[in-house]
Amino acid sequence: MATGTTLSAAISLGAPLGRLAILSAILIVLPLSFPNPFFFDVAVKVGLSAIVCVGLNLLSGYAGQISLGHAGFFALGAYGTALLSIKLGVHGLIAAPVIATVVGLLAHVIARPILKLKGHYLAMATLGLGIIISIVLNREIWLTGGPDGLSVPAMRLGEFKLRAIEFWYWIVAAFLIVAVWLAENLVNSPAGRSLRALHSSEIAAATAGVDVPRAKALVFAFSAVLASIAGAFFVFAERFITPADAGFLRSVEFLTMIVFGGLGSTYGALVGAAILTALPQLVAAFAEYKHVAIGIVLIATMIFMPRGIVPTLADLFGRRVGR
């Protein structure tokens, strides 16, 4: 728990760039403690969840628009990139941004009608969207391989085959830092303040001149782009994807990570993603009791720390400093 306190100290006291430096330092030092490639693999999965969560937290944490369908965008990014390179021979480095752009545009188009909905209606609509995507991925076997999943050959860069998980760790870590930087910039900008404003009162935000539908559509699209890019990296690093990665439960996991870490806290999203992704992987011994354990952890955390881990700890620490 010692690292936890240091971390929250840094979070509550540091300036945005200071926090970013600490995050970078952690990501650089962390691999020194990895005994084998399995740990790199877990770390890559953590990093990819974190990228999705940083975007989702902008949408749900800051702007207050709940999504239970973001795994769908992750899957679109993953399958889109994979299929573009397998079927059309497009290089992954081109396929990933092309697909991310397409996913972003798509999300922007559907955002307007969907984000008119509020609360549970919005949850239902995003949930439906995610499920429809996962059902299509399951059914269109000729294209996606169906429930068995899709294997993707390793990315090639000239002579090199980029298969080493260690390599992808560094790529994912770098992109995570970029994502956090972008998100923190946004939060502290006029556009970000508008998003946080419409969270509690859309009428007052509109009165203040915020184009509410536009603001929501943009943040929805941006979060979809981040999810799509994370999906593409997943395909590069893991070279295998199944429709389960697009399913409802995956979307729930993403939402859970940001609530667990602390809604409306970018670093909370990171902590939530890290704990909830790494724990089930590392305590494989528990496999049989996995669901029981996850259920209890979810309920208990939400009851005892309804604001999430990072804000709760930051408060505790902040108060101690204040005294």
């Binding site: 749900s60 709940i66 239970l68 609360g119 549970h120 949850a123 729930v252 939402l255 859970t256 609530v259 667990f260 809604l263 009791y289 996995k290 669901h291 029981v292 354990a293 996850i294 259920g295 209890i296 952890v297 979810l298 309920i299 939400m302 009851i303 309804p306």
Partner: peptide, 17 residues
Amino acid sequence: LATLIIITIGGSVLLRG
């Protein structure tokens, strides 16, 4: 809202587990 959604989903996972 999000917290309650997660609690009930947690309950669902728990019962299933």
